[in-house]
Amino acid sequence: HRVFGGIVSFREKTELTKLLDTLTEVSQYSEDLRAQTHEFSNKLYAILGLLELKQVDEAIDLIKEEYTLQNRQHDLLMKQIRSPKIQAILL
């Protein structure tokens, strides 16, 4: 129950700030991916529901709408980002 010594670690504040910023970015990225996955699952369930209700044309329309939206976002992204390496990562 006695203290025999102590250890002190000194670090630059900027190093700690960079680490916290990185953790915040990773956390935000993780949350964004979770939300995107949830949204995509909802669309799949909507398509499944339409198919189960024999609403095939509506299901096809929903798929086409999503496909068009994804293509527009892809084209916009590729026009704005010039680096092939970053484009490859995003794809």
Score class of each variant (00 low, 15 high):
Leu62Arg: 00
Arg2Leu: 09
Leu76Glu: 11
Gly5Asn: 01
Glu15Phe: 14
Gly6Gln: 03
Thr14Ser: 07
Ile81Phe: 01
Phe10Thr: 14
Val56Lys: 06
Leu51Phe: 03
Arg82Glu: 13
Ser30Glu: 09
Phe10Ser: 14
Glu31Gln: 10
Asn42Met: 09
Ser30Ala: 10
Gly49Thr: 07
Thr14Arg: 03
Leu33Met: 15
Ile86Gly: 03
Lys18Ala: 13
Asn42Arg: 06
Ala59Ile: 05
Arg11Val: 06
Tyr45Ser: 02
Thr37Ala: 15
Glu31Cys: 14
Ile60Tyr: 07
Ile81Ala: 09
Leu51Asp: 01
Ser30Ile: 02
Leu77Asn: 08
Glu15Val: 05
Met78Glu: 02
Glu15Lys: 06
Glu31Ile: 14
Lys18Ile: 15
Ser27Ile: 00
Thr24Gln: 13
Gly5Asp: 04
Ser30Val: 03
Asn42Phe: 00
Glu65Trp: 02
Ser41Leu: 12
Val26Asn: 11
Leu48His: 02
Leu19His: 02
Ile63Cys: 15
Leu76His: 00
Asn71Val: 09
Ile86Arg: 13
Arg11Ile: 06
Met78Tyr: 07
Thr24Val: 15
His74Trp: 11
Ser27Asp: 06
Tyr45Gln: 09
Ile47Pro: 01
Gly5Phe: 00
Ser41Met: 10
Leu33Phe: 07
Leu69Met: 11
Leu77Lys: 02
